[in-house]
Structures are given as C-alpha cells and as structure tokens.
C-alpha cells in the first residue's frame, strides 16, 4: 500500500485545492451536522467508491461515474426513506455498505485494475494537476454561490421542517438540493482526502466551531477557519515529515477539536456553545 506525502513541487496546487475543499466541506457539512446527518458524507463517499470502481472497470473517467452513482443512490434512498419512513441512520448504513460492497466486487472482478488507482480514491492523493485545480475551484465556487443564495431556505428547513413547509418553502426540494451539493462536494474532495476520511472534514470543524459560536454565521465562519487551518497545517506536516497528507489533515482537524474541548472545558473562553449548555 502506498500513502502519498506532499512533494515540494505539488505544494501550490495542493494548497489551493485544499483551501477550496476545506471551505466547501465545512459549509456543506454544517447543514449535514445540524440535520443530525453527520455520517451522510461518509455514506456518499462509500457509494461513490462503488462508482469509482465501476468507472475504472468500464474504462470511463471514474469521478463522473462516481458523482452520478453517489447522487442518484442518495436521492433514491431519500425518496425511499420518505415513503417508507425509514430512519436516517439506517439509510446511511445502507448507502455506505452497498456502495462499498459493489466497489469491492467490481475491483475483485477486474484483473488489470491498478491497485494504486483504488488507493488514491480510498486514501486521497497528494498529486493534483492544474486541470484538477481549475475543476475544484470552479465547482467549489459554484456550490458556495448556490449555498449563499439558498442558505436561508436551507437553514429554515433544517431548523423546523414543519414551519418551513407552512411558510411555503418546498422542504423536499431543499433536501434534494443539499444531497446533490453534498454528493458533488464529496466527489471533488475525494481526490485529496479519500473516501475513508472525507466525513472528518464535514464534521470536525463544524463540531469544534459549535462549541464557541453563538450564531449560525459565526459557526460557519469559525468552522471555515478551523477547516482551512487543519488543511494548510496538514499539508505542511505531510511535506515536512514525509507522511500521508490526508491523515495529517484529519488528525490536525481532530487536534483542533480536542484543543477546543480543553479550552472550553477550562473556562478560558466563555460563550454559549454546546458545553455551556451542559454546565
């Protein structure tokens, strides 16, 4: 198994992509965390893995196949959940296991599949070319713009489904929009952090921010700061110590979370976050 550390030449590309991905994951992740859907990113990534394996198997650029598979399966399962009243955590488990299962079968069926290609999607890659950077920036910009124009409706649907519906918001459409956005976010982030670690970027910065922030806007800004700090520090640690980049990013994000808990628990910062409620 080969894990990639960041090389000197790739630092500018990785940094630019990493910052864009961090901003995107923390913004999209906040809505998922608030909807108690923290593992949904993980489930999307695993179903995308099935798509990646299928793409590699049939020889089509795997990320587009993965994107279609992740979004369609998530939308399909959401529709089933609404119709048959299945719980959200069960849907996450189904999506996660089915995607991974399909991926494993396709990998085992293919004799000429490069194991390195699969590893790249599982654990992330430290090599991102200029074309990929442009794609990541364009997609991240588009998704952040969509979020900017729809966040009030998305937030209202997240806060109270019943009240949002009663005010005329199409809550189902908002859910589908969020799923689609999360699916695309997973796909463009997968190259860097990998299928197995992606949910960390959705969840850790947001949970850390929620410990301190009083408002939604504060939470969003603080979460973005934490995510960018984790990514930039993770990339430099990876380069400095020649260790896997995705693992470094996630561990720095986890360290920020633990540090936030310690600072908050020690009472050095007084806000009205999660800990204050439990005090």
């Amino acid at each position: 198994m080969t894990f990639e550390a960041v090389s000197y030449e790739s630092i500018p590309h990785v940094l630019v992509s990493g910052i864009a991905i961090s901003l995107l994951c923390s913004a999209v992740g906040l809505f998922l965390v608030l909807r108690k859907f923290s593992l949904f990113g993980d489930a999307l990534a695993h179903s995308a893995f099935g798509g990646v394996a299928f793409g590699l198997f049939i020889g089509i650029y795997p990320l587009w196949i993965a994107c279609a598979v992740a979004i369609l399966s998530a939308l399909g399962l959401t529709k089933i959940r609404q119709k048959f009243d299945i719980s959200s955590d069960a849907i996450v488990a189904i999506l996660l296991a089915t995607g991974l299962g399909a991926g494993i079968i396709l990998v085992s069926m293919s004799d000429d599949l490069e194991i390195h290609d699969i590893e790249e999607f599982l654990f992330g890659s430290a090599i991102i070319d200029t074309q990929n950077v442009i794609t990541i920036l364009a997609m991240a910009g588009a998704i952040l713009a969509i979020l900017f124009f729809t966040y009030k409706k998305l937030l209202y649907s997240t806060f109270s489904e019943e009240q949002a519906k009663a005010s005329g918001i199409s809550v189902d459409k908002m859910s589908y929009l969020l799923i689609t956005i999360a699916g695309v976010t997973v796909i463009i982030s997968m190259q860097m952090v990998g299928v197995l670690l992606i949910s960390a970027l959705f969840v850790l910065p947001n949970v850390s921010a929620m410990l301190y922030a009083r408002s939604f806007k504060q939470t969003m800004m603080l979460s973005m700061c934490f995510a960018v700090s984790a990514t930039v520090s993770g990339i430099f640690i990876s380069y400095q110590f020649d260790i896997a980049q995705s693992g470094c990013i996630v561990l720095v994000a986890a360290a920020i979370f633990i540090g936030s808990l310690v600072v908050k628990g020690s009472g050095l910062v007084k806000t009205t976050g999660i800990l204050a409620k439990r005090a």
């Binding site: 409706k153 937030l155 109270s160 005010s167 005329g168 408002s215 939604f216 939470t219």
Partner: peptide, 19 residues
C-alpha cells in the same frame, strides 16, 4: 416549539430565515 438547544442560531437569525 421543538428547538434543538444546541442549534447555533440567534433569535434575529431565526426571524430572518424565510421564503
């Protein structure tokens, strides 16, 4: 009202969420 005690939104933000 069923309000999640940890939902990070101020009263002003709750009033601003709308169609």
């Amino acid at each position: 009202p069923v309000v999640d005690r940890n939902f990070p939104a101020t009263i002003r933000e709750v009033l601003s969420m709308s169609q």
